[in-house]
Design a protein around this nucleic acid. Structure first.
Lengths: 265, 265
DNA sequence: CAAGAAAGAGAGCACCGCTCTTGCTTTTTG
DNA sequence: CAAAAAGCAAGAGCGGTGCTCTCTTTCTTG
């Protein structure tokens, strides 16, 4: 099936990739609102109508970029996860949260595309749900591992209301049957909350409030771990040595271009 | 100063209001992306260029709508707060969170305008910061009251990293000097987390996961209260009677129009 | 009342997404 | 192998957008 079929097919693949790449470039530079089919075509030296041979509409192009973005943030999460195999669950959790946050800050427009405001009522095409859950699965893996190793405490807080419990039970059956129901509910809540913090950071809601963005996210992530029951290890003094958490070297390119117009969102 | 100055001035005020109202209507119906100056002008029976006598650009119009939205969600929070005077802090907290969430669900496009994705790097014009903080102040009021009444516990979790502590201390001096620094930091984190949950709900990220939206938000809100140190009252059994929290009658119009195109965001 | 400021109307510019038709090339098929 | 089919680029064009400029009318004010 995956044999090369001929010059035409190969060309199609290449052109499609080029379009996606140029679109991705413009997305990163200017944001989804300013992404223009005509501009992409112009940059590629083709006429705009030719582009419709490859993507039936602008929305379809953006959907492709959405999938890429989900994949990228998922890959960032998985990569961070992979580097933390033996560590205590809370540390692994914070590491993955930090990786996700760093990706978001480094790719604000892509992040906005997937965790910003879509048209409400829009249900994502099924192609997106797979890539979309990669990041979530990375976090779930930590919890499952902790559970396997007997390091998972029950989440704090009042018992679940019945409908929430029902939802969580259904979810548990799908993704992690061995985990306690309250833990599942806590994961979902904490997952949303993590993206609340990241969104506020990326979207500038912390602007005149928090300067120490990285440290703040770490702090919040640690709090979220606690909420799931990924308690600090037995020796809380050793838990998170300041130097490790608060000052990682790879600061990289967190500066954002800061375009002109506000909105058009 | 506020004396009426003449027919012209009065007309200007009225026309400005009419424009804002029509724009608001289109925003609610179609979303910010589809809000068009020309359409607003058309609906008002004027020509599009005339509209520029009142708003110098589309962005300015949207900024006005942003302020309105902040005011509306702030008013919703304050109104919910006002009805909970004698109640235990955790209950008040949940009530305000629920009011904010209900407003967001009822006005998804307006919510997206203020808590969705702006252009990153955009710093809001100073006109917006006042209205923007109304909702936050409502939540802070609960914490201050709890503190005054001796009902505030220190927030759980590890001690603050130094830079976070510095940010929180600066914030504390501005808004609530009597509160402990860790509490301030916890409020900021929890505030962001709350909007994470609400955003996931409004933007459909919970779509195939959580059906019991309202109960889930209550559950999450209760957890957030815990994180601030607004512990459950002394009698945890009486804490949140199922009927009160889980099933409020006013379900109202939570249905979202669900437009066609996905994105254009 | 006349000068000046404010407001509306209209034309026009440079974009946008998208469609349709027209030629040309590659692939498939009789 | 030639003919038919399918894929592709190009161009023109449609209706829409935000925004600017000029011209005329209307109201305010010295």
């Amino acid at each position: 099936m995956s044999v090369i079929k001929g010059a035409r097919e190969r060309a199609r693949i290449e052109v499609t990739a080029a379009i996606k790449q140029e679109a991705s470039k413009q997305l990163a530079a200017e944001g989804a609102a300013r992404l223009s089919l005509r501009a992409v075509a112009r940059e590629l030296g083709m006429v705009s109508s030719a582009l419709y041979r490859y993507f039936p509409s602008r929305d379809e192009l953006l959907t492709a970029l959405i999938i890429d973005a989900y994949d990228a943030i998922g890959a960032a999460a998985e990569q961070a996860l992979a580097g933390t195999d033996g560590e205590p669950p809370a540390d692994r959790w914070v590491a993955v949260c930090r990786a996700v946050g760093a990706w978001a800050v480094a790719h604000p427009h892509e992040y906005a595309l997937i965790y910003g405001s879509p048209v409400p009522g829009y249900t994502a095409p099924d192609d997106t749900v797979g890539p979309a859950s990669r990041a979530a699965f990375a976090l779930i893996t930590i919890v499952r591992d902790a559970h396997r190793d007997g390091l998972l405490q029950p989440p704090p807080g009042r018992p679940l209301a019945a409908p929430v419990r029902a939802d969580a039970a259904r979810l548990a059956a799908e993704i992690a049957p061995e985990l306690p129901i309250p833990t599942i509910a806590a994961i979902v809540a904490v997952w949303a909350q993590l993206f609340g913090v990241i969104s506020f950071e990326v979207f500038g809601q912390f602007n005149r409030m928090i300067d120490a963005r990285r440290e703040f996210l770490d702090q919040a992530a640690a709090g979220l771990a606690l909420q799931i029951g990924l308690g600090a290890a037995e020796s809380p003094a050793e838990d998170t040595p300041e130097g490790t958490i608060a000052a990682t070297p790879e600061d990289a390119t967190t500066t954002i271009p800061a375009p002109d117009g506000v909105l058009r969102s």
